[in-house]
Amino acid sequence: MLRKALGDRIDRDARSFPDMMDEHAVMEFPYALPDLPDRLDGREAVARHLEGLGGLIAFDRMGEPTVHPTTDPAVVIIEFEGFGRGVATGAPYDQRYISVIRTENGRIVLYRDYWNPIAVLRATKGAAFVDALVGGGAGHE
Rank of each mutant, 00 (worst) to 15 (best):
Y31A: 13
E44S: 12
M27S: 12
D11Q: 05
R85F: 03
R9E: 08
D94K: 13
Y93R: 00
D94I: 09
A32D: 02
K125T: 07
E64P: 04
P117N: 06
D131Y: 13
T89I: 04
M27A: 15
M62H: 15
V100L: 08
A119R: 10
G136M: 06
I77G: 00
G126A: 11
P30I: 00
R48K: 15
K125W: 03
L33H: 00
L36N: 06
D94M: 14
P18M: 09
V100T: 05
I118T: 12
E28A: 08
G55P: 04
E23C: 02
E64K: 09
A138D: 10
G139E: 05
F59T: 10
L33S: 01
R48G: 12
L110K: 09
R9L: 12
V26N: 05
P18T: 08
D22V: 01
V26T: 12
G135T: 10
P92V: 08
P18G: 07
I108Y: 02
V75T: 05
H24Q: 15
G139N: 06
G86T: 03
A25D: 01
L50E: 07
T70M: 07
T124M: 00
V75G: 01
Y31G: 13
R48H: 14
K125H: 10
M21D: 01
P73I: 09
V100D: 01
I57C: 01
L121R: 04
A47W: 03
R85G: 01
V100N: 00
G55T: 13
T71K: 11
A91Y: 05
P117S: 06
V120F: 12
A138E: 13
A127R: 12
F17V: 11
D131H: 15
N116L: 03
H24S: 14
P65S: 04
G82Y: 04
V26I: 15
L33K: 00
L40D: 01
A25G: 09
R96A: 12
A25M: 03
R112Q: 09
A91L: 05
V87F: 04
V76T: 14
A119H: 13
V46K: 00
V76L: 09
E81C: 09
F80M: 13
K125M: 10
G54K: 11
G90C: 05
D35R: 11
E104L: 12
G82W: 07
P18C: 11
V130K: 01
V120Y: 06
P37R: 05
R61Y: 14
I77T: 03
G54I: 08
A5T: 04
F59M: 15
P73R: 09
L40M: 04
M20E: 02
Y97A: 10
D94T: 10
D131L: 06
D113L: 01
D8W: 08
G42Y: 00
L6M: 07
D60A: 15
P117Y: 05
D113C: 07
E23V: 07
R12N: 12
V87M: 05
A74W: 07
M21F: 08
L40E: 00
A74L: 14
A132M: 10
I98C: 10
Y97R: 07
A45H: 05
E104W: 04
E141A: 11
V87N: 03
G42H: 00
G7S: 07
D41Q: 14
L56E: 07
P73H: 13
H68T: 13
L121V: 06
V130L: 11
P73K: 08
D113P: 02
R96P: 03
R107E: 03
A127V: 10
